[in-house]
Amino acid sequence: MPGIYEVYIKDYFAAAHVLKGYDGDCANMHGHNWIVEAYIQCTKLDHLGIGIDFKDVKNAVTDILSKLDHSFLNENPAFENINPTSETLSRFLFDKLSQRLNTEHIKVKKVMVLESPGCGSSFQEA
């Protein structure tokens, strides 16, 4: 029966940011222990029954996050002209991860970013 498999991983990083133009405390520099969840869809399994190895997804996410960990996100070139919000960060990570993992049968479906447990956003293509 045709179908779509979904692989999921969770990772973490710590970073600070400032929300320029925000009317409130978040206009000041502050940090989060960000939680990142990545969902990858696979339409085909290999001879072992694997769509994409968890290790491959985890390594890609860890490598991308290592460039953000313990940084000031506003100084990252990706956020020169936009605030590094949960929303823009989820899009940034979605794009980076898609560049690394997408193939004919493997596609990044969604990336969720939480600033704190129970508070965050996600990005997926329409």
Rank of each mutant, 00 (worst) to 15 (best):
S122W: 04
E37K: 09
V57H: 13
N59L: 14
S121R: 03
N28E: 10
S116Q: 03
Y39D: 01
F94L: 03
W34L: 04
A15Y: 13
C119V: 03
W34I: 05
Y39W: 06
K55G: 09
D46C: 08
Y5Q: 10
I82D: 02
S98H: 03
T62Q: 15
N33M: 03
H30S: 11
A16L: 07
F79G: 03
R91S: 04
I35Y: 00
A16E: 10
I4G: 06
E87R: 06
A16M: 08
G3N: 01
N59S: 14
I82E: 08
A60P: 10
I35E: 01
P77L: 12
K44S: 07
E104C: 04
L19V: 14
V57K: 07
S98K: 09
E75Y: 11
M112W: 01
K110L: 04
P117W: 00
Y39G: 01
D69F: 06
V61P: 03
N76H: 15
E75R: 06
K67G: 10
I64A: 13
D63L: 14
F123K: 00
Y22K: 05
I64R: 06
T85Q: 04
Y8Q: 13
I4T: 15
V113G: 01
N102I: 10
D11E: 13
A38L: 11
G49C: 07
D63A: 15
M1C: 07
L48G: 07
K58V: 10
Q124L: 09
K58S: 13
R91N: 04
N59I: 11
N33L: 02
S71G: 09
N83R: 05
L89S: 06
L19Q: 12
A38Q: 04
S71D: 12
H105A: 07
A27V: 09
Q99F: 14
H30K: 10
P117S: 01
V18R: 12
I35V: 03
G118Q: 00
L89N: 04
H70F: 10
